[in-house]
Write a protein that binds this DNA or RNA. Structure first.
Lengths: 225, 225
DNA sequence: TGTACATCAGTGAACGCGCGTTCACTGATGTAC
DNA sequence: TGTACATCAGTGAACGCGCGTTCACTGATGTAC
C-alpha cells in the first residue's frame, strides 16, 4: 500500500472519481445497473451534469469502473475469509469460501446482479474484464492442491472426458479432472442457491442458512473424499 | 380447449392483445424486460402509441401478462417432456424434467431472465403471480411419490429439521424431508448451471451439455437412492 | 328490416419527464523562466 | 520572488432523443326496439 506521491491536483481528481463511483454504486444498489444515470450522479454530487465527463468519457466507462471495483471487493472478501483459516484445515478453508461468497452477496445484492446477472442492455463489457467467478475457483483449486486427493472420484458420474473441462483446467491447473467436475457442479449449486435467495425464489420462511450450510457439507465431502 | 363462443369484436380484441404481447416479447428477447417499450410496441404494430392503452392500462400490465404467458410456456414444456416418459421409468422422468428446463432456457434466454432473474427496476409484480419455480418441484414431487423410497437419506447432511423446509413441504406434500432437501439442492444446482451458461459465466469452450448431464445423473441417483 | 342510440377501437396532438453527450466559456491552479 | 503562459475542472445552455400517459375527437361496429 505504498502511496505513490501525488500532486494535489491528482489527489483531488482521484477523490472526485471515487465519489462518482460511490454515487453510481448507490444507484446500482437501489435499482440495478440499468438505473445508473450520469445526470443523477452529477445531481448527487452537486455538480453540472457535463462535469462528470471530465472524469469518465461515457456512461459505459463508469459502469466498467464500477464492475472492476465490485469484483475486487468480492475477491478480497473471499481471499480474506479463506486466509483466516489454518492451512491444514482443508475442510474449513472450503467452507469459508462458500460462506463468504453468500455473505458478500447478501450484503451487496445488486452488485452480485451486476457481476453475475443478465447482461445490462446497451452496455458492452470490455474484453479486459475477467470473469469474477474465476477467483472462487482459483482459491478452491489452491485448497485442492494442499489436500490429499483420494484415489478416484466419489461417483463415476464425475469421471468426464478431459475435453469437457478445458477452460476449467486452465483456470485451476494441477487439479485432477474429477475434482474439477465436482468443483464446477459445486459452483453451479452455489451460484443458484445464492441467486435464488437474492431474487426471492426460495421459500421466504424456510431456513435458508441451514439449507445452504447443508449443501456446503455435501460438496466439501465430495471434494475431499 | 373448448372455444367459448366469442363475438367478432371479442375475437379481434383477443388477437390484437396477443399481437401486443408478441411484440413485447420480441423486445424482451433482444434487450431484456427493461427494454420493453409501449411506444416501440405500437410502432411495430403500426398503431398510434396511445392505442395500446385500450388493451393494457399501463406498461406494468403488459409485463405482467407477458410474465404469466412465459411461465405457462415453461410449465407446458416441462409437463409435456415428463409426460412423454413411461410412468415406471422414474429415472427417465426426472432426467426429462432437468433437460426440458435447460432446453427451454437456452431457447428463451431473456424469458428465463424475466422469470428468474433480478427484479425489473420500477416494475412491481402483482402478488397473484405464483413463483414459476414451483412447477418444477411439483412435477419432481409427483415422480418422488411414485418411486419407491429408500429407507433414509444418501447422506446425513440432508437430514434437516422439518422447520427448515416448511414452504417446500407445502409445495410438495407427501415427500419425505430428506428428499425435499435433496430436491432443493438439485433445483439450486440446476438454476445455477442454466443461469451461468446463459449469461456466459461458464467456459465457452467447455462441453456444457456433458457437464449438465453428469450433474443430472448425480442428483437422480441421490433422489432415487 | 330499418332506425336511433350506445359502445368502443383507434387517432394525433400534447404534457412533462429524464436521459447522454457536446460545446464554447470562465476562472482557478499549476509550471517555466 | 515575480511574471507570463498553459493546463484543466467545472459551468450552463443546448441538441436530439425516447419514454408513459392523458385527452378530446372521429368513425366504425354492435344493440334495442
Amino acid at each position: 500500500m505504498s502511496k505513490p506521491r501525488l500532486t494535489p491536483r491528482e489527489r483531488v481528481r482521484a477523490e472526485v472519481s471515487a465519489e462518482i463511483l460511490d454515487a453510481a454504486h448507490r444507484q446500482l444498489a437501489d435499482g440495478g445497473a440499468t438505473h445508473i444515470s450520469l445526470r443523477a450522479v452529477a445531481r448527487e454530487l452537486g455538480m453540472a451534469s457535463s462535469a462528470v465527463h471530465r472524469y469518465f468519457a461515457t456512461r459505459d466507462d463508469v459502469i466498467t469502473a464500477l464492475l472492476l471495483r465490485e469484483y475486487t471487493s468480492l475477491a478480497d472478501a473471499l481471499t480474506a475469509a479463506e486466509a483466516a483459516v489454518p492451512r491444514v484445515d482443508h475442510r474449513g478453508r472450503i467452507e469459508a469460501l462458500f460462506l463468504a461468497e453468500r455473505r458478500w452477496a447478501l450484503d451487496h445484492p445488486r452488485s452480485w446482479g451486476l457481476l453475475f446477472g443478465e447482461p445490462v442492455p446497451g452496455y458492452a463489457a470490455p474484453e479486459a474484464t475477467t470473469d469474477p467467478a474465476t477467483r472462487f475457483f482459483q482459491l478452491l483449486a489452491a485448497v485442492s492442491r494442499d489436500a490429499p486427493a483420494p484415489a478416484g472420484p466419489p461417483s463415476e458420474v464425475f469421471d468426464l472426458p478431459p475435453q469437457a473441462l478445458l477452460v476449467a483446467a486452465a483456470i485451476a491447473p494441477g487439479v485432477p479432472g474429477w475434482r474439477l467436475a465436482v468443483a464446477m457442479a459445486a459452483g453451479a449449486w452455489m451460484f443458484g442457491s445464492i441467486s435464488a435467495e437474492l431474487w426471492g425464489h426460495l421459500g421466504p420462511h424456510d431456513d435458508l442458512e441451514t439449507l445452504y450450510r447443508a449443501g456446503v457439507q455435501h460438496w466439501v465431502s465430495l471434494l475431499l473424499g
